[in-house]
Amino acid sequence: MEDISSIVFGPVPSRRLGRSLGVNNIPPKLCSYSCVYCQLGRTISYSTERRQFYDPKDLVEAVSRRVEEIESRGERIDYITFVPDGEPTLDVNLGKEIDGVKSLGIKTAVISNSSLISLEEVRSDLSESDWVSLKIDEIDAKRWIRINRPYGSTKLDDILEGIRSFSVEYGGYLATETMLVKGIQDAGDIEKIADFISSLESVKRSYIAVPTRPPAETWVTPPDEDFINTSFQIFSEILGSDKVEYLIGYEGDDFSVASDVIASLLSITSVHPMKKEAIEKALAENGYEWSAFEELVNDKKVVELKYRGETYFMRKIRTR
Rank of each mutant, 00 (worst) to 15 (best):
I248M: 14
V302E: 03
I159C: 08
S32M: 11
E120S: 14
V303E: 09
E97W: 01
R16W: 01
S199Y: 01
D137I: 08
E61K: 14
S241C: 07
S118F: 12
L90T: 02
E237V: 00
G249L: 09
V244R: 12
T43L: 08
Y33Q: 10
G172K: 11
F196D: 10
V12S: 10
G172L: 12
Y207Q: 12
L126P: 01
V168S: 14
K107I: 01
V60G: 01
G41F: 04
G152F: 04
I147T: 12
W219K: 13
K102G: 03
I111Q: 06
R19P: 00
I268S: 06
A258E: 12
S124M: 09
E61F: 02
I147A: 07
P222D: 13
D158W: 07
S114M: 07
D130Y: 02
W290N: 09
D140L: 08
Y207D: 14
S267F: 02
R315D: 03
I268H: 03
E304D: 02
T319A: 04
N93G: 00
G86V: 09
S45Y: 09
A194D: 10
V261C: 10
G74P: 03
S103D: 01
K96G: 04
E191A: 15
V23N: 10
A209T: 14
E2S: 12
E177I: 03
D242N: 14
V12A: 14
S133L: 12
Y33P: 01
Y207A: 10
A263N: 13
W144C: 04
I228L: 15
G287I: 02
I4T: 08
A109V: 06
F232E: 11
V257P: 00
Q233L: 15
E169K: 13
P211L: 12
R66C: 05
E120M: 05
V92S: 15
S199F: 01
E225P: 02
Y151M: 04
L160A: 11
W219S: 11
G86C: 10
R51F: 02
P273M: 08
A62T: 11
Y54H: 12
F9C: 07
S231H: 07
K102A: 05
G240W: 11
V23I: 14
S34L: 09
